[in-house]
Design a protein around this nucleic acid. Sequence first.
DNA 1: CGCCGTTGTATCGGCATGTGAATAACGGTC
DNA 2: GACCGTTATTCACATGCCGATACAACGGCG
Lengths: 236, 236
Amino acid sequence: MSDSPTREFEARLAADGVVFDERDADLLRAIRAAGSLNAAAGELGRSYAHAHRRLGELEAAFGSLVERTRGGSDGGGSALTADARALLARFDRLCAEFTGLTTADENVLRGEVRDRDGELVAVETDAGRVHALAPPDASTVQVTVRADAVTLHEPVDAPGETATSARNRLAGAVAGVSGGETVGRVAVDVGLDEPLVAVVTLDSVDRLGLEPGVAVVASFKATATRATPAARDADP
Amino acid sequence: MSDSPTREFEARLAADGVVFDERDADLLRAIRAAGSLNAAAGELGRSYAHAHRRLGELEAAFGSLVERTRGGSDGGGSALTADARALLARFDRLCAEFTGLTTADENVLRGEVRDRDGELVAVETDAGRVHALAPPDASTVQVTVRADAVTLHEPVDAPGETATSARNRLAGAVAGVSGGETVGRVAVDVGLDEPLVAVVTLDSVDRLGLEPGVAVVASFKATATRATPAARDADP
DNA sequence: CGCCGTTGTATCGGCATGTGAATAACGGTC
DNA sequence: GACCGTTATTCACATGCCGATACAACGGCG
């Protein structure tokens, strides 16, 4: 798909009405590095007054984040609490997931909702039935699967549908392999206009002997694929 | 893990320096619904002047988005171009992926990087070796796997390691199943302090006969798991 | 006791963002 | 030609965020 507009994000952790964002993470990291709120604010090019006020807001919602001491031979200082380190770690994990999502290719299949059971739907696409999660109001949809959510199998060994929780399985042939240094993009022709892309390690590419023409089975979980209502083009 | 701070996000599409965010998506949706920029601005409680200026900025970066006509019996109006509809669809897909990420449980494993090949690392955890993607500077890390990226297999049928691109595989026993209406959370004891959580359809829960005590194999791809540097607690 | 660099607190001013109002142009319909 | 609701454009004004500044309090050390 067109990737001219690049996907970006801003990660947030919200508690009690106040949101912790990248700027706040930078502030905590700077405090951790500098050992003082004053130096941290200077390092970030922000005013001490603002950093102090912001820190107060954050602590009101997230609990104690820095232990401050004033006076003493060194004049005092600030250090992160264990809660603050945990908060930062959680934020970093979230960012890592988001960046993984924005950098990974996305596969999109168009189709029509045939069956529905709560948020779980069966969508009829050019490549066959695909199970996905969908919002309540969706009839003709676009189904999205991340390339890193698609696993490839040797056809002979492909487990029976009954034996795994990955219910979506499309058989096809490798159309191309374009590699990075350690991770490769494998395009699989499964009967769609565009090939299905799977991101796998080069190690797996070798192990499975993936090269153009080789038959493979691509599988992905229903809970990892999401359907969104397709913009109806027949709009006035 | 603690989910008291809820994970949130802001999705963005950036092109040529200007970023398209949720507010802009709302504007386009309102134009699509109302058929006029003026009515759309009123509907959103924004000033026409600002909406008009913003639309100009967006079109300078993303190309023509609305076709405007003025005069006529109805006074004129505005309609989205095909490009604008495609942009909205892309934005919706991105949001769907992000919400899926923020709502899904995350599994986090702590460990130490043992081997590295570019961005691919092997991490030694309490449950064994796990392959993941990691930033360049990481020795002791926390490994994150989304619950919807974990697929479960019957042990007897579990494919050989050589036959699939899902290289991480942990054997264990079901510790508990807590279900939603159509999607269930399956906790698997794999030798960690906390069980590994997999989100699967209830259909799969039945098919695999998942209930406490049942032996299963959990697998997930290396390209779907990410390692982030663990906050060193031994900070001054 | 005075020095120092820090944490607290308050206030002022600038800059950016968005609103509100006013005006012109447009082009079908009555 | 008058009317109407829209697009298009401009300017003044409010509001809020944030930086800058100033000042008090703290506490170990020389």
